[in-house]
Amino acid sequence: MMLRVVLLTGLAMLAFAGNSLLCRAALSGTAIDASSFTALRLLSGALVLSLLVGLRQGARVGGDWYSALALFGYAAAFSFAYLQLDAGAGALLLFGAVQAGMLGYGWWRGERLSALQQLGLASAIGGLLLLLLPGASAPAPGSAALMLLAGACWAIYSLRGRGNRDPLAATAGNFLRSLPALLPLLLIFHRELNWDSLGAFYALLSGALASGIGYAIWYAALPQLRALQAASVQLSVPIIAALAGSLLLGEALTPRLLLASLAVLGGIALVLRVKARGTAA
């Protein structure tokens, strides 16, 4: 049983990092544009997730329109951000924004951090600021802002999905409900619409495999993981994306990215570890 959980969790993290790699590879190395990538990703994800739900006897898709809007905001901002971001830097910004958003929500609901947790949060924020400081290796400000927006949207989506009795059915429904929002996006950027077979292939892989199958695998592992374990294991995603981006896409592992990753991921790990000890007590 434990081996199964480890394998499922590892595959899910590879799928999450794969979204960053596939998006960056498509937008930097093929003719596809960000709007078309977003559309193909959401369409293929909706199809695969709906098929997975349909395979279960008596199951129906769920979800809601507010969550679908947050999902669309995440997917669109994610694609446009990767026009000028490396895979590793993008994943780090995304992950940092997601965790900051969820911690901020907890603070707003009355949760307070201990001194060590505050130190960890300060380290994470400092790491993001280090990455964003002007310089030769700093990410483009507009793209960085879009990725932070994508992280905020994903945090909202995640918070709205807490407590779903059937998260797979809810995600399938949210993907389906996100599709009408594609029409105004494609209309606004209709002059830039363009794609080739390789770019479309990457987008379909991102939607069907890294998103659709990836989410299904993650939901199969989640019941066997504690909430803090589930949060902690996602610390690996930016590291996987950065290393794979360097090996597969030829992206540079700059000292700034490495230091920022250490500060952000170490800080968040400290927050989660202290919280875990407090929960255990």
Score class of each variant (00 low, 15 high):
M1V: 14
M2D: 14
L3A: 13
L7W: 13
G10Q: 03
L11C: 05
A12L: 02
S20C: 09
R24L: 08
A26G: 14
L27I: 04
L27F: 11
G29E: 01
I32F: 06
F37C: 04
G45C: 03
G45L: 00
L47N: 03
L49Y: 09
S50D: 08
L52T: 04
R56G: 00
Q57C: 02
G62H: 08
Y66I: 14
S67F: 09
A68G: 07
A75G: 06
S79A: 13
D86M: 01
D86I: 03
G88A: 03
G90C: 04
L92D: 05
F95Y: 14
V98A: 05
L103I: 15
Y105T: 13
L113I: 05
S114N: 11
S114D: 12
L121A: 14
L131P: 04
A136Q: 15
S137V: 10
W154E: 12
A155C: 07
R162G: 09
N164K: 09
A172V: 02
S178N: 05
P180F: 07
L187A: 14
I188P: 09
R191L: 13
W195Q: 11
S197F: 00
A200G: 02
F201C: 11
A203K: 06
G212H: 04
G214W: 03
Y215I: 09
A216I: 00
A221E: 00
L222M: 11
L222T: 09
Q229C: 06
A230W: 02
A231C: 04
V233F: 15
P238Q: 05
G245F: 10
A269F: 11
V271A: 08
K275G: 15
G278P: 08
A280G: 13
